[in-house]
Design a binder for these strands. Structure first.
Length: 307
DNA sequence: AACCAGGCTGCGC
DNA sequence: GCGCAGCATGGT
């Protein structure tokens, strides 16, 4: 049977529109293309490149292969990736109940109803991205990522448009500092990224190994042994990749800004101050962070350029 | 034109 | 254990 499509059931409290809006909120992400109500991205699999397009069809999300039909193994991989990416398997009711009880944040539930915690399912990619984004503004971070991806990742051209996949640790482990510096990475960041790739190549870090830890605090400690990974990065990766619901990227500039805007926190609140508020959101802390980030993006002015 | 960006390391105390 | 310079460059 030739299978060109995979169908996933949409869960309750899910809005494709909200999720796409977040992904298309004004930054130049090189790993997918959004066109109206569909999103297209490339997977580099062991059997070769796989270009897929996800659209909404009634109560389902449809993942279509734009090349050959899905091999069974690819179908499974892509389906679980997409579920993970858009956090489809989570029932949001408890989170919405918590928001409803919070007078100051209740609006999040209504403004962004159906928004899911958009993830970065690949742990390696998530860690790279968080290292790239350290201490620089997001437009520049996306540019650095694009340069890395275009230089070292797989690419295919489909209907005149190029699609890219994030390079594997094996490829990046071979890159040298002098290979990254011309792309405007700092020497320090280049060291972090190459070192990280080597840790993945030698299997010193893996999602499975992290999940074996009993609690979130131990995962953070384990990740922080990696050079270039501090408290912020560890929590960011746990939140975006492993969907550890109690992870909070303490000190995050965006989180701080949102807490200042909405709750009138100090501009740089300490960890204790943040914990104090987030305490009520046990098991949904990462979701709250994500929804707070969402408040920082606003609709693009009509006619604004988008690349 | 400073000052901050979805921070971290390494050093000095 | 705590504070601080340095990192590289773009936005505002």
């Amino acid at each position: 049977m030739n299978k060109y499509e995979i169908c996933l059931e949409k869960p309750a409290h899910f809005s494709w529109k909200e999720c796409l809006w977040f992904l298309d909120r004004g930054y130049d992400d090189c790993l997918f293309t959004i066109d109206g109500a569909s999103i297209t991205r490339l997977f580099a699999t062991e059997e070769g490149n796989l270009l897929i397009r996800i659209t909404e069809r009634k109560e389902k999300l449809v993942i279509a292969s734009l090349g050959a039909p899905f091999a069974e193994r690819n179908a499974n991989h892509v389906a679980s990736y997409v579920k993970d990416w858009f956090d489809l398997d989570r029932a949001l009711d408890p989170f919405y109940a918590l928001l409803e009880a919070d007078e100051k944040l209740r609006f999040l539930r209504h403004e962004y109803a159906g928004l899911r915690l958009i993830g970065i399912p690949d742990l390696y990619e998530a860690l790279c991205w968080s290292i790239i984004g350290q201490q620089i503004n997001l437009p520049f971070a996306y540019r650095l990522k694009r340069r890395m991806v275009e230089n070292f990742g797989a690419a295919v051209v489909y209907e005149g448009h190029a699609y890219h996949a994030f390079p594997s640790p094996a490829v990046l482990a071979q890159v040298t500092i002098t290979g990254l510096v011309p792309l405007q990475f700092s020497v320090r960041k280049a060291e972090y990224l190459i070192g990280l790739a080597k840790l993945f190549v030698t299997n010193r870090i893996s999602r499975q190994q992290l999940l074996a830890f009993a609690d979130h605090e131990q995962m953070v400690q384990d990740l922080m042994r990696i050079r270039g990974v501090g408290l912020w990065t560890a929590n960011y990766a746990l939140m975006k990749s492993l969907k550890i619901m109690n992870s909070i990227p303490y000190g995050d500039a965006g989180l701080n800004k949102a807490l200042f805007n909405i709750l009138h926190f100090p501009k740089a609140p300490g960890r204790e101050r943040v914990d104090e508020y987030f305490n009520a959101y046990q098991d949904w802390k990462a979701y709250l962070v994500f929804y707070l980030w969402r408040t920082l993006s606003h609709p693009r002015p009509v006619g604004a350029q988008k690349n």
